[in-house]
Write a protein that binds this DNA or RNA. Structure first.
Lengths: 420, 420
DNA sequence: CAAACTTTGTGCGGCCACCGATCAAAGTAT
DNA sequence: ATACTTTGATCGGTGGCCGCACAAAGTTTG
């Protein structure tokens, strides 16, 4: 069937749980435009100027929007320019990686004001991780160049699927030591703000959609290639989670039925062929054929393989080329099935640049029938390793722009301060 | 960024292009409930009884809903029961297949009132196909057991991707003779109703979601295995089209890199391994190993292979088992990437029943890491070969329930007629 | 069996979101 | 200088929806 309960979604002008939706919508519009006059809002939104005047009168006391002077005339009276105050408050975005924690403090435009990161055995030490997150959050807030601004909320990216029906839960399979719960409620209480949690690849996708090259497209896929490989999707501006919150798990697509056995119990998963660990294993495997390689005769890290490839080492180049082709096969499958407008590659491996991108694009071109699918842009993240933490902060921003009551009280500048 | 233009989606109580959205919402609610009192509507929708009374007063003259008497008391006055009149008008659903045309006449509950089908070289003969569609539509309307009921619209399923930005277009690649346009506007003019067009697999998915086992789930995938193989998706109650309208093309997923060359120019696509043609080729290939097979020594059709498999012929069983496993690999990839709640199998091949389903489910269980993904239901369509045509009619129903002005004028029965 | 209570559907006054008209202020075109 | 435009504020009006009151018709209770 269809339309079960949310029949009234958007139909009632003021639901008891969300008064004045119009004010929020206008606030979003101002955020989008950054600087805009009341008359312009009326034109864009199809509202009357009188309504916009009234609504703006409600918004101004929130402290998120200021009148910053007059704009150029369009043939008549000069408009009063409203500006969204990106710096009126701050947001914390936390990335829980497999082996590290990173925290970003951002403003309301996704700019990173402070950045803290530290290695930690996240998977095996839940309590220590929670303590570390709180510590790094506090350090970010203290070190902030413009301290004392109110905090909106804390977004947390976890390296586990998040079931939409149990937002406080974690996968017991992926993170057994965490016993199925992230237990981050205390973090919110300590800082007195709400907590938002989602999967890391999903939040990377969100960040790329809001701030990266995926701006303005309807459907974006983000692929994170680090120790492992995962992917997240934005469809119609929203994070796509699937029925049970595990959508977009590109890691166990079948690439080569004759391939290595994977932890999931089958052969030739993308995860066995792509990612840091696979890179190391494959390099060790091919070493006998390349005795002259700079990697020969000693243990080596993933980073060293990447550096060797960038320096032109034939073994490293071969390994990277193979990885790129396997990834290309998976991306082709993803394009065929989900048909996104943009695929953004993130994670450590993307520092390889065109060494990764060129063979990947070649493989995709060969593996997609319909030209419009192959026309999808495949690009490397400009946000780099920070995209997941930024995405976590963006999750808070997105929620707050959807319901302005989530914003904290902001001291409204007096006339003298505003004129200063 | 986000939220480009449809910022006001659902925020304005009466957009100039859609007055009285509440009446439409209540109409949908009545459709959902089939029989319901005003008071019950008020409870379900969170509206006041006075508002519901007023809105129902607007809806009754449309002729789509009737008062059919009193219901049981709940401890007070007995309610007046409103019933959605499923038989108040009819819808035509057209399936353009690769080699045939089928037309279903349905009521407003997806019931098939008339069914016409005829083989035709659809791909190569656009003009003849258009004539044939019009003829079959006319026959359906004439042969209808309850003739004379007004027609709401005509939905058409085409065997080609449909770009959401060009709804009147067809793929020049898949159907070159059609020159990129379906040219079905005349059909609508001839019958004086609007035309709705979408991809066949998408509409099969829609039908399964509204009428089949996929009822009530948020995300459903439909896989059609006939001459070829294609798939469609319903996400959040809506047809998912992807960025360029070609989402869900499962046919060219890479299954076996060492496999046969495909028309798309690469090896081991699902389309080369699954589907009627692949079945025939594979059976011919294996024939020497099975001289005792009932298929030996003569040309055979796909249907004969299926019958032979159902009768226990070892060659046919082997071929079908292989197909099922390949399909299972593709379905596993689909589950990993899109994470639907239900996968519905349709098309001709599903008459194989468990012969297809059992090995497919086995393969899926082995190829999905996370249990919640593997927990997706994989079922065979109950609508059978009619699902695509029914889905085409459902497209019209869905659009009309979203905007009741699309319904035709219906003669409202007088009091005497209603009491009869 | 009468009295008390419930439920349904309708009518009416009222609130509030939003609009249109109007106006003052301040610009541009001629 | 004059006519026209544009902006933003104000104010009265419209219409969607609600709360309340009420009649009708049921059920429960003493």
């Amino acid at each position: 069937m269809f339309n079960e309960n949310p029949i009234w979604k958007g139909l009632r002008r003021s639901a008891p749980d969300h008064p004045r939706p119009l004010a929020d919508a206008v606030l979003r519009l101002i955020w989008n435009a950054r600087r805009i006059s009341r008359a312009e809002i009326a034109r864009l939104a199809g509202l009357s100027r009188s309504t916009v005047s009234e609504v703006v009168g409600e918004i101004l006391p929130l402290g998120l929007v200021s009148e910053i002077g007059e704009g150029p005339s369009r043939g008549g009276r000069r408009p009063i320019v409203l500006e969204f105050r990106d710096d009126s408050c701050v947001i914390l975005g936390v990335e829980m990686g497999g082996a590290h924690v990173a925290v970003a403090l951002t403003d309301l435009r996704g700019r990173v004001l402070a950045w803290e990161t530290r290695g930690h055995p996240v998977r095996s030490d839940p309590a220590g991780t929670r303590r570390l997150i709180a510590e790094l959050c506090a350090r970010c807030l203290e070190s902030s160049p413009a301290g004392g601004r109110p905090l909106v909320g804390i977004g947390v990216a976890v390296p586990s699927p998040v079931d939409p029906s149990r937002p406080d839960g974690l996968s017991r399979v992926v993170m057994p030591a965490w016993e199925g719960r992230h237990g981050l409620e205390d973090l919110g209480e300590r800082f007195g703000v709400p907590i938002f949690v989602d999967n890391d690849a999903n939040l990377g996708a969100l960040a790329e959609h809001w701030w990266g090259q995926g701006g303005g497209v309807d459907h974006l896929a983000y692929i994170k290639v680090a120790t492992g490989v995962g992917s997240g999707h934005i469809i119609g501006g929203e994070i796509y989670r699937g029925a049970t919150g595990v959508a977009g798990e590109i890691g166990h697509l079948a690439i080569d039925p004759q391939g290595k056995r994977c932890v999931c119990g089958l052969r030739g998963c993308l995860a066995t062929l792509v990612g840091g660990q696979a890179l190391q294993e494959r390099a060790a495997e091919l070493l006998p054929e390349f005795p002259e390689s700079t990697l020969a005769g000693r243990p080596f890290t993933v980073l060293e393989i990447e550096d060797a490839a960038l320096a032109g080492d034939p073994l490293a180049l071969k390994v990277v080329g193979e990885v790129a082709k396997h990834l290309g096969t998976a991306v082709a499958g993803l394009l065929n099935l989900m048909n996104p407008s943009v695929v953004v590659l993130g994670g450590d491996l993307v520092q390889l640049g065109n060494l990764l991108l060129d063979p990947l694009r070649d493989r995709v071109k060969n593996r997609t029938l319909i030209s419009s699918v192959a026309a999808a842009d495949i690009v490397i993240s400009e946000l780099g390793p920070r995209s997941v933490a930024i995405g976590a902060a963006t999750l808070v921003l997105k929620a707050s722009l959807g319901d302005s009551r989530l914003f904290p009280e902001i001291p409204v500048p007096t006339v003298e301060e505003a004129e200063r």
